[in-house]
Simulated scan of single mutants.
Amino acid sequence: METLYQQQARVFKALCDPKRLAILEQLRTGEKCACVLQQPLDLTQSGLSYHMKILCDSGLVESRQEGKWTHYRLSREGREAALDLLRQLTTPDAEAQSSGCACRRGRE
């Protein structure tokens, strides 16, 4: 069974590769067919499929089939979820902050 942290890590995995960042940049101008994405990145079909699976699994990209080709587009919901996750992970929780580290409390 997948943990919450494993699910969340998919977003960051999708963002930590230069080829995937280049794919996201291309998708900013709208939906693209796999054949269009493949050429400028000098990727094989299997290489593109590998990167697209990671991007789709992260929720940042959505796909649809049209004949034998797959078309990809950015996901608005995925973007919002990724932004919410980053905000949640990087915002201090004032209520949960302790009054110091445990090693100091032991000496008092």
Rank of each mutant, 00 (worst) to 15 (best):
V11S: 01
D42K: 09
R105P: 00
M1S: 15
T91A: 15
D93Y: 02
E62C: 06
F12A: 02
I23F: 04
K19L: 09
S63G: 04
C35S: 15
Q39L: 08
G100H: 02
Q7N: 06
R104M: 12
H71F: 11
R28T: 11
S49M: 05
S46F: 06
E108D: 13
R28C: 06
Q39H: 02
C16I: 00
R79K: 06
E2F: 04
Q38F: 03
Q45H: 14
T90E: 03
L24R: 07
Q8W: 05
A102V: 12
T44Q: 10
L83R: 13
L48P: 05
S75N: 12
T29N: 14
Q6C: 05
S63Q: 12
R104D: 14
R107Y: 00
E2K: 09
G78D: 06
R10I: 01
Y50Q: 14
L55R: 03
I54Y: 06
E2Y: 02
R76S: 13
V61L: 12
K53F: 09
L27E: 04
M1K: 11
L48H: 07
S63W: 04
E2S: 11
Q7C: 07
R10P: 00
V11C: 01
I54W: 01
A94W: 04
Y72W: 01
R76D: 14
V11R: 01
D42V: 05
G30I: 05
L41A: 04
C56A: 13
M52S: 04
A96K: 06
C35D: 15
T70V: 10
Y72K: 03
G78V: 06
P40S: 09
R79P: 00
Q65P: 02
L37A: 14
E95F: 07
Q38A: 11
R79S: 12
K13H: 13
S46H: 09
R107G: 04
D17K: 09
E77N: 07
S46R: 12
R107M: 05
Q6Y: 12
Q38K: 13
E25R: 14
D57M: 03
T29L: 12
K32G: 03
L89W: 08
T70I: 12
L43P: 05
R64L: 12
E25C: 12
C101L: 07
R64G: 13
G67R: 03
A102D: 08
E95I: 10
A81M: 15
P40V: 01
G59T: 00
D84M: 08
K13R: 11
A102Q: 09
L15V: 03
Q7Y: 10
Q88C: 09
R87M: 13
G47V: 03
K13C: 05
L89Y: 05
A34P: 01
L21P: 00
K32T: 11
T90R: 03
K13A: 15
D84Y: 00
E25V: 10
C103D: 11
M52D: 05
Q45C: 10
L21A: 07
S98A: 14
M1F: 06
V61K: 10
G100I: 01
A82I: 01
Q38N: 08
V61N: 14
D84W: 01
G106Y: 05
